[in-house]
C-alpha cells in the first residue's frame, strides 16, 4: 500500500490508547472534524480490544495495525495471530458475544459497521483474525 503506516504492539490494553493517537495523528493532514476522529478512534478501540481479549484471550501476542489513505479513503487493518473466529456471520450480529461474563456488550462489530463504510473480517480458527475497516473521509470528499 502507498504511504502506509505499520505498527506492531503487544496485546496489552494499555496500548489501546497508542492505537487511538496513531490513527488520530495519521488522519490529521486530511483535516478531520472532531466527530470523524472520535468515530474512527472508537472503532480502533473496539477492534484492538477484540484482538487482545478475544484473539489472544489476554495471553501475550502481537497486534498489528496498518493505516493508509488512498483517494480519500482511510483503510485501517487490525490483525492478530490469536485463536480466530469460527462463524464470522454470527459474531457480526448485534449483541452476540462469546464472553458475556466480561460485561462486553457484543456491539463491537455492530459499531464498526455503523461508523465505517466497510467492515470486513477474515479469520482462520487457530491462526488469527484480520479486520479491515474503510471510511471515506468527509473533508476529502468535499474537496476541502
Amino acid at each position: 500500500m502507498k504511504n502506509e503506516v505499520v505498527v506492531q504492539f503487544p496485546s496489552l490494553s494499555e496500548y489501546e490508547s497508542l492505537a487511538r493517537v496513531i490513527v488520530s495523528s495519521f488522519m490529521l493532514p486530511y483535516d478531520p472534524t472532531f466527530d470523524e476522529l472520535s468515530d474512527v478512534k472508537t472503532v480502533v478501540s473496539e477492534a484492538v480490544t477484540n484482538a487482545i481479549i478475544h484473539g489472544y484471550e489476554y495471553q501475550p501476542g502481537i497486534v498489528e495495525l496498518r493505516l493508509a489513505i488512498v483517494a480519500g479513503i482511510l483503510t485501517i487493518v487490525i490483525k492478530d495471530n490469536g485463536q480466530g473466529i469460527d462463524n464470522i456471520e454470527q459474531v457480526k450480529e448485534p449483541l452476540f458475544t462469546t464472553k458475556p461474563e466480561c460485561e462486553r456488550s457484543g456491539m463491537g462489530f455492530t459499531i464498526m459497521e455503523q461508523f465505517m463504510d466497510r467492515c470486513h473480517i477474515e479469520s482462520t480458527p487457530g491462526k488469527g483474525t484480520v479486520v479491515t475497516l474503510e471510511k471515506m473521509l468527509v473533508s476529502v470528499a468535499m474537496g476541502v
Binding site: V21, S25, L28
Partner: peptide, 28 residues
C-alpha cells in the same frame, strides 16, 4: 458545525499534536 482539529488548534493557539494528546489523556 463541528470544528476540525486544525480550526480548534488555530483558535486556541495550540498544536494539533497537543489536542490529540490531551483528548486521549482525559480518557485515562
Amino acid at each position: 458545525k463541528v470544528p476540525s482539529i486544525h480550526e480548534l488548534a488555530v483558535q486556541l493557539d495550540l498544536t494539533t499534536e497537543q489536542i490529540i494528546e490531551a483528548e486521549e489523556a482525559v480518557r485515562r
